[in-house]
Write a protein that binds this DNA or RNA. Structure first.
Lengths: 117, 117
DNA sequence: TGTTCACTTGAACATTTATTCATATGAAAA
DNA sequence: TTTTCATATGAATAAATGTTCAAGTGAACA
């Protein structure tokens, strides 16, 4: 029979574990960070953001540019909106979308540059 | 009855569409970029990368630090390895992992900083 | 008013993804 | 050799995610 104690010590670097553990950040930080990256972890959304970095566009235009249905684009725009990555203004029936700030597209441009090597 | 032609033109900004469409990059670029971001779009992997940015660590240590089974950590390490984000060296039975380059952790640090505001 | 149009939304479906459990590998130690 | 231990892997499961289709809004215009 095996003792099933709290301290199941056979791990080697006791102090390395403690040292790094102390430096770890709160759970929410990590999930916040991963959520931020997750949203640019989808090709459709990358395309949308890239397109919007060139020009303010309506849903209809976007759907033609990236070759997806307006519904699909609209769903993705909602996610981007919820994460404050895009903003929009209404003009009659249309909704013109643009980037919320340049922070995101900066990341994407880095990614693109990295992808091209 | 409705004509179901190729050119279903009721989109407004004909030239905006053309202009941005010309600036779009090839499909593979976008999927490459999104794949890169997708891999840091998971809290477990962010934790692993963050921990490794502090110190070279074995699977066992990592699993204690982030509080997951060694199996789960190992599976994630494989994904990170496949994407060349971590490297490892074998020492006896253990595998010591470290970051493949500082590029990734730079991104994460940016993300963390952004998350803390 | 009623119709058209741009966009949004909800539900359904298919796909991907992360974790768990059980098992395999392979090095060290007995 | 046999056992032990650190890690890796495969299959299974559950959860999350992206797209489609159908229906719903609400503004413009007849």
């Amino acid at each position: 029979m095996k003792t099933n104690d709290v301290c199941d010590e056979r791990c080697i670097n006791e102090d390395a574990v403690r040292e790094v553990k102390e430096k770890m950040l709160p759970e929410e930080i990590f999930s916040h960070v991963s959520d931020d990256f997750k949203i640019i972890g989808d090709p459709t959304r990358v395309k949308i953001l890239f397109a919007l970095s060139k020009k303010e566009l309506c849903v209809c235009d976007l759907s033609r540019i990236i070759g997806m249905t307006e519904s699909a684009v609209s769903h993705q725009l909602r996610l981007l909106r919820n994460r404050n990555m895009v903003k929009f203004r209404k003009e009659g029936k249309m909704a013109y979308y643009s980037l919320a700030d340049s922070h995101v597209i900066h990341l994407i441009k880095m990614g693109v540059q990295h992808a091209r090597e």
